[in-house]
Simulated assay, not measured.
Amino acid sequence: MSPSAAPDLPIAGVPTGHSKWTTERVLDVRYWTPAMLSFRTTRDDAFRFTPGHYARLGLAADDGSIVWRPFSMVSAATDHHLEFLAVLVPGGAFSSALARLRVGDSIQVERASFGFLTVDQLAAGRDLWLLASGTGLGPFVSILRDPSVWRAFERLIVVHSVRRSSELAYRTELTTLADEHLLVAGAARLLYLPVVTREQGATALASRIPRLIADGRLEEAAGRQLSVLASRLMICGNPELALTLRQVLGARGFATSRRGIPGQMAFEKYW
Protein backbone atom coordinates (compact mmCIF):
# COMPACT_ATOMS: atom_id res chain seq x y z
CA MET A 1 0.00 0.00 0.00
CA SER A 2 1.04 3.61 -0.26
CA PRO A 3 1.11 6.56 2.12
CA SER A 4 -1.20 9.45 1.50
CA ALA A 5 0.57 12.58 0.33
CA ALA A 6 -0.05 16.24 1.09
CA PRO A 7 1.01 19.16 -1.13
CA ASP A 8 3.14 20.82 1.55
CA LEU A 9 5.30 17.87 2.57
CA PRO A 10 9.05 18.44 2.88
CA ILE A 11 10.78 17.46 -0.35
CA ALA A 12 14.32 16.36 -1.04
CA GLY A 13 15.35 18.76 -3.81
CA VAL A 14 15.13 17.89 -7.48
CA PRO A 15 18.13 19.07 -9.51
CA THR A 16 17.23 21.78 -12.00
CA GLY A 17 17.44 20.84 -15.63
CA HIS A 18 16.45 17.23 -14.97
CA SER A 19 13.19 15.34 -15.50
CA LYS A 20 11.15 14.71 -12.36
CA TRP A 21 11.89 10.98 -12.44
CA THR A 22 14.49 8.42 -13.37
CA THR A 23 14.00 5.07 -15.07
CA GLU A 24 15.24 2.24 -12.85
CA ARG A 25 15.52 -1.51 -13.33
CA VAL A 26 13.94 -4.16 -11.12
CA LEU A 27 16.62 -6.24 -9.40
CA ASP A 28 14.55 -8.60 -7.26
CA VAL A 29 10.92 -9.47 -6.49
CA ARG A 30 9.92 -11.45 -3.40
CA TYR A 31 6.40 -12.60 -2.59
CA TRP A 32 5.76 -12.99 1.14
CA THR A 33 2.18 -14.04 0.38
CA PRO A 34 0.21 -14.15 -2.89
CA ALA A 35 -0.83 -10.54 -2.21
CA MET A 36 2.20 -9.09 -0.39
CA LEU A 37 5.53 -8.52 -2.07
CA SER A 38 8.75 -6.60 -1.71
CA PHE A 39 10.90 -5.55 -4.63
CA ARG A 40 14.28 -3.92 -5.21
CA THR A 41 15.30 -1.55 -7.95
CA THR A 42 18.43 0.21 -9.06
CA ARG A 43 18.98 3.64 -7.52
CA ASP A 44 20.02 6.86 -9.19
CA ASP A 45 23.23 8.20 -7.66
CA ALA A 46 21.56 11.54 -6.93
CA PHE A 47 18.50 10.12 -5.15
CA ARG A 48 18.48 11.03 -1.45
CA PHE A 49 16.05 10.26 1.34
CA THR A 50 15.76 10.15 5.12
CA PRO A 51 14.66 6.80 6.60
CA GLY A 52 10.87 7.01 6.89
CA HIS A 53 10.45 8.96 3.64
CA TYR A 54 8.55 7.73 0.62
CA ALA A 55 8.87 8.21 -3.14
CA ARG A 56 6.39 8.07 -6.00
CA LEU A 57 6.75 5.10 -8.33
CA GLY A 58 5.40 4.84 -11.86
CA LEU A 59 4.41 1.71 -13.79
CA ALA A 60 2.75 1.26 -17.17
CA ALA A 61 -0.97 0.52 -16.87
CA ASP A 62 -2.99 -1.72 -19.17
CA ASP A 63 -3.80 1.24 -21.44
CA GLY A 64 -0.16 2.26 -21.73
CA SER A 65 -0.39 5.27 -19.43
CA ILE A 66 1.90 5.62 -16.41
CA VAL A 67 0.21 5.09 -13.05
CA TRP A 68 1.93 6.70 -10.05
CA ARG A 69 1.71 5.65 -6.41
CA PRO A 70 3.79 6.63 -3.36
CA PHE A 71 5.67 3.92 -1.44
CA SER A 72 7.92 4.16 1.59
CA MET A 73 11.52 3.10 1.20
CA VAL A 74 12.40 -0.10 3.06
CA SER A 75 16.07 0.11 2.09
CA ALA A 76 18.69 1.88 4.16
CA ALA A 77 19.53 5.44 3.14
CA THR A 78 23.06 4.24 2.30
CA ASP A 79 22.08 1.24 0.16
CA HIS A 80 22.92 1.33 -3.55
CA HIS A 81 19.44 -0.02 -4.35
CA LEU A 82 15.90 0.97 -3.40
CA GLU A 83 13.52 -1.48 -1.73
CA PHE A 84 9.75 -1.27 -1.28
CA LEU A 85 7.00 -3.31 0.40
CA ALA A 86 3.55 -3.48 -1.19
CA VAL A 87 0.24 -5.27 -1.14
CA LEU A 88 -1.77 -6.01 -4.28
CA VAL A 89 -5.23 -4.43 -4.28
CA PRO A 90 -7.80 -6.33 -6.36
CA GLY A 91 -8.79 -4.24 -9.37
CA GLY A 92 -6.22 -1.51 -8.65
CA ALA A 93 -4.55 0.00 -11.72
CA PHE A 94 -1.13 0.14 -10.07
CA SER A 95 -1.55 -3.27 -8.46
CA SER A 96 -2.37 -4.84 -11.83
CA ALA A 97 0.89 -3.47 -13.22
CA LEU A 98 2.80 -4.41 -10.07
CA ALA A 99 1.58 -8.01 -10.27
CA ARG A 100 3.26 -8.29 -13.68
CA LEU A 101 6.58 -6.94 -12.40
CA ARG A 102 9.60 -9.14 -13.11
CA VAL A 103 13.35 -8.84 -12.67
CA GLY A 104 14.76 -6.68 -15.45
CA ASP A 105 11.57 -4.65 -15.94
CA SER A 106 11.63 -0.86 -15.87
CA ILE A 107 10.02 1.33 -13.21
CA GLN A 108 9.91 5.10 -12.87
CA VAL A 109 11.10 6.64 -9.59
CA GLU A 110 10.41 10.30 -8.91
CA ARG A 111 13.55 12.17 -7.90
CA ALA A 112 11.92 13.74 -4.82
CA SER A 113 11.37 12.01 -1.50
CA PHE A 114 8.66 13.05 0.96
CA GLY A 115 7.32 12.54 4.43
CA PHE A 116 7.03 13.44 8.11
CA LEU A 117 7.56 9.91 9.49
CA THR A 118 11.20 10.51 10.43
CA VAL A 119 12.95 10.31 13.78
CA ASP A 120 14.07 13.95 13.56
CA GLN A 121 10.42 15.00 13.84
CA LEU A 122 10.32 13.71 17.42
CA ALA A 123 11.51 15.21 20.68
CA ALA A 124 14.46 13.44 22.28
CA GLY A 125 13.43 10.37 24.27
CA ARG A 126 14.57 7.06 25.70
CA ASP A 127 12.31 4.47 24.02
CA LEU A 128 11.25 4.44 20.37
CA TRP A 129 8.03 2.51 19.71
CA LEU A 130 7.41 1.59 16.05
CA LEU A 131 3.76 0.53 15.68
CA ALA A 132 2.73 -0.89 12.30
CA SER A 133 -0.07 -2.79 10.65
CA GLY A 134 0.45 -4.71 7.41
CA THR A 135 2.79 -3.04 4.93
CA GLY A 136 3.07 -0.09 7.30
CA LEU A 137 6.14 -1.90 8.58
CA GLY A 138 8.12 -0.80 5.52
CA PRO A 139 9.46 2.58 6.66
CA PHE A 140 10.33 1.16 10.07
CA VAL A 141 12.64 -1.40 8.49
CA SER A 142 14.43 1.50 6.80
CA ILE A 143 14.64 3.37 10.11
CA LEU A 144 16.04 0.30 11.87
CA ARG A 145 18.67 -0.05 9.15
CA ASP A 146 20.04 3.36 10.20
CA PRO A 147 22.82 2.97 12.82
CA SER A 148 22.22 6.50 14.17
CA VAL A 149 18.78 5.44 15.45
CA TRP A 150 20.41 2.76 17.58
CA ARG A 151 22.61 5.39 19.18
CA ALA A 152 19.75 7.83 19.81
CA PHE A 153 17.61 5.52 21.99
CA GLU A 154 17.99 2.97 24.76
CA ARG A 155 15.22 0.67 23.54
CA LEU A 156 13.66 0.10 20.10
CA ILE A 157 10.29 -1.64 20.27
CA VAL A 158 8.78 -2.89 17.00
CA VAL A 159 5.13 -3.96 17.04
CA HIS A 160 3.86 -5.43 13.76
CA SER A 161 0.19 -6.39 13.56
CA VAL A 162 -1.12 -8.61 10.75
CA ARG A 163 -4.01 -10.98 10.20
CA ARG A 164 -1.99 -14.07 9.25
CA SER A 165 1.49 -15.13 10.32
CA SER A 166 2.56 -15.40 6.67
CA GLU A 167 2.18 -11.61 6.48
CA LEU A 168 4.96 -11.01 9.02
CA ALA A 169 7.36 -9.67 6.41
CA TYR A 170 10.99 -9.20 7.48
CA ARG A 171 10.37 -11.29 10.58
CA THR A 172 13.74 -13.05 10.41
CA GLU A 173 15.63 -9.79 9.91
CA LEU A 174 13.85 -8.10 12.77
CA THR A 175 14.64 -10.92 15.17
CA THR A 176 18.35 -10.84 14.31
CA LEU A 177 18.94 -7.17 13.47
CA ALA A 178 20.62 -6.38 16.78
CA ASP A 179 23.51 -8.65 15.74
CA GLU A 180 24.30 -6.77 12.53
CA HIS A 181 27.91 -5.67 12.59
CA LEU A 182 27.13 -2.05 11.74
CA LEU A 183 24.74 -1.75 14.66
CA VAL A 184 26.44 -3.55 17.54
CA ALA A 185 28.11 -0.32 18.68
CA GLY A 186 24.70 1.26 19.28
CA ALA A 187 23.37 1.51 22.80
CA ALA A 188 19.82 0.47 21.97
CA ARG A 189 18.28 -2.94 22.55
CA LEU A 190 15.74 -4.16 20.02
CA LEU A 191 12.48 -5.86 21.00
CA TYR A 192 10.31 -7.29 18.22
CA LEU A 193 6.68 -8.02 19.08
CA PRO A 194 4.72 -9.65 16.24
CA VAL A 195 0.93 -9.64 16.55
CA VAL A 196 -1.23 -12.07 14.55
CA THR A 197 -4.95 -11.43 15.03
CA ARG A 198 -6.65 -14.23 13.04
CA GLU A 199 -4.59 -17.34 13.80
CA GLN A 200 -5.14 -18.48 17.34
CA GLY A 201 -1.87 -19.20 19.14
CA ALA A 202 0.39 -17.92 16.35
CA THR A 203 1.84 -15.16 18.57
CA ALA A 204 1.72 -14.33 22.25
CA LEU A 205 -0.14 -11.11 21.43
CA ALA A 206 -3.26 -11.53 19.32
CA SER A 207 -5.41 -8.40 19.71
CA ARG A 208 -5.30 -5.20 17.72
CA ILE A 209 -2.69 -2.66 18.82
CA PRO A 210 -5.14 -0.10 20.31
CA ARG A 211 -6.68 -2.80 22.52
CA LEU A 212 -3.23 -4.00 23.59
CA ILE A 213 -2.40 -0.46 24.65
CA ALA A 214 -5.74 0.13 26.36
CA ASP A 215 -5.54 -2.97 28.57
CA GLY A 216 -1.82 -2.64 29.32
CA ARG A 217 -0.74 -5.87 27.62
CA LEU A 218 1.57 -4.14 25.17
CA GLU A 219 3.51 -2.38 27.92
CA GLU A 220 3.67 -5.61 29.88
CA ALA A 221 5.05 -7.52 26.89
CA ALA A 222 7.60 -4.79 26.19
CA GLY A 223 8.63 -4.43 29.80
CA ARG A 224 8.39 -0.66 29.36
CA GLN A 225 5.72 1.89 30.21
CA LEU A 226 4.40 4.40 27.73
CA SER A 227 5.27 7.78 29.17
CA VAL A 228 5.24 11.24 27.62
CA LEU A 229 8.63 11.93 29.19
CA ALA A 230 10.51 8.88 27.84
CA SER A 231 8.48 7.27 25.02
CA ARG A 232 8.41 8.29 21.38
CA LEU A 233 5.95 6.63 19.02
CA MET A 234 5.80 6.28 15.26
CA ILE A 235 2.63 4.81 13.74
CA CYS A 236 2.15 3.57 10.20
CA GLY A 237 -0.76 1.52 8.89
CA ASN A 238 -4.42 1.65 7.93
CA PRO A 239 -6.48 4.78 8.62
CA GLU A 240 -8.46 3.12 11.42
CA LEU A 241 -5.26 2.31 13.31
CA ALA A 242 -3.91 5.83 12.86
CA LEU A 243 -7.15 7.51 13.94
CA THR A 244 -7.68 5.27 16.96
CA LEU A 245 -4.10 5.57 18.20
CA ARG A 246 -4.13 9.33 17.74
CA GLN A 247 -7.14 9.44 20.06
CA VAL A 248 -5.87 6.86 22.56
CA LEU A 249 -2.38 8.34 22.82
CA GLY A 250 -3.64 11.91 22.72
CA ALA A 251 -5.78 11.17 25.76
CA ARG A 252 -2.61 10.08 27.55
CA GLY A 253 -0.85 13.37 26.78
CA PHE A 254 1.11 12.45 23.63
CA ALA A 255 1.17 15.06 20.84
CA THR A 256 2.46 15.35 17.28
CA SER A 257 4.99 18.01 16.32
CA ARG A 258 3.59 21.43 15.46
CA ARG A 259 4.92 24.93 14.76
CA GLY A 260 8.48 23.82 15.23
CA ILE A 261 7.77 22.15 18.59
CA PRO A 262 8.89 18.49 18.50
CA GLY A 263 6.22 16.06 19.66
CA GLN A 264 6.14 12.58 21.10
CA MET A 265 4.42 10.80 18.19
CA ALA A 266 4.45 10.80 14.39
CA PHE A 267 2.04 9.23 11.88
CA GLU A 268 2.01 8.03 8.30
CA LYS A 269 -1.35 7.00 6.90
CA TYR A 270 -1.56 4.10 4.45
CA TRP A 271 -4.35 2.96 2.19
Rank of each mutant, 00 (worst) to 15 (best):
L117R: 10
D179F: 07
C236P: 07
R30Q: 09
D45G: 09
H18K: 10
T16V: 09
G91Q: 09
R100A: 11
S227P: 00
H53Y: 03
T33Y: 14
I209L: 13
R100K: 12
T33H: 11
G250M: 12
H53L: 04
A266G: 05
D120G: 07
A55I: 05
T256W: 12
L182W: 14
A132T: 10
D215P: 15
H53A: 04
A204P: 02
L101V: 02
G91C: 06
A86T: 09
R259Y: 11
T16H: 11
G216N: 07
S2F: 13
S148H: 10
L243T: 09
I235V: 15
Q200D: 13
R43H: 07
A61N: 08
L88S: 07
T244P: 08
M234A: 07
V248I: 12
V89C: 09
V195A: 13
F140C: 08
R43D: 06
F114P: 01
P90W: 06
G237W: 07
W32Q: 02
Y31Q: 00
L101P: 08
A187D: 13
V196E: 13
G263R: 12
I235W: 14
Q264T: 15
T50R: 13
F49K: 13
E199K: 06
L137G: 08
A60T: 14
A6M: 05
F94P: 06
A206K: 09
A35K: 10
A152N: 07
P3H: 13
I143F: 12
Y54C: 10
Q247F: 05
S106M: 02
G17N: 09
R217T: 10
R145H: 03
M73I: 02
M36S: 02
F114T: 00
F114W: 08
Y170N: 03
A112R: 14
V87A: 10
V195F: 15
T22P: 03
S166M: 01
D44R: 01
H18R: 11
T256R: 15
R224W: 14
V109D: 10
F94K: 06
A123R: 14
T175K: 14
R69L: 09
V26E: 11
R211F: 00
T244I: 08
A230V: 03
W150R: 01
T78Q: 15
S227H: 01
A60K: 12
L37H: 06
W271D: 13
D146C: 03
L212R: 08
H18E: 12
L245E: 01
I209A: 08
A99W: 06
W129E: 09
V141G: 06
S2N: 12
E83W: 06
V184A: 00
R258E: 15
G186D: 08
A188W: 05
A5C: 10
P147C: 06
L156K: 11
Y31A: 01
L57G: 03
L191W: 03
R56C: 06
G13K: 14
F39R: 02
L241K: 04
E154W: 11
L82W: 06
L122I: 09
A251N: 14
S19P: 12
M234Y: 05
M36C: 04
A5G: 10
E83V: 09
D127I: 05
R217G: 00
E24M: 11
R211G: 00
A214M: 04
F94H: 05
S4G: 08
R102V: 03
V87M: 11
H18C: 06
A77I: 01
T197V: 12
I235Q: 10
V228T: 12
S106P: 00
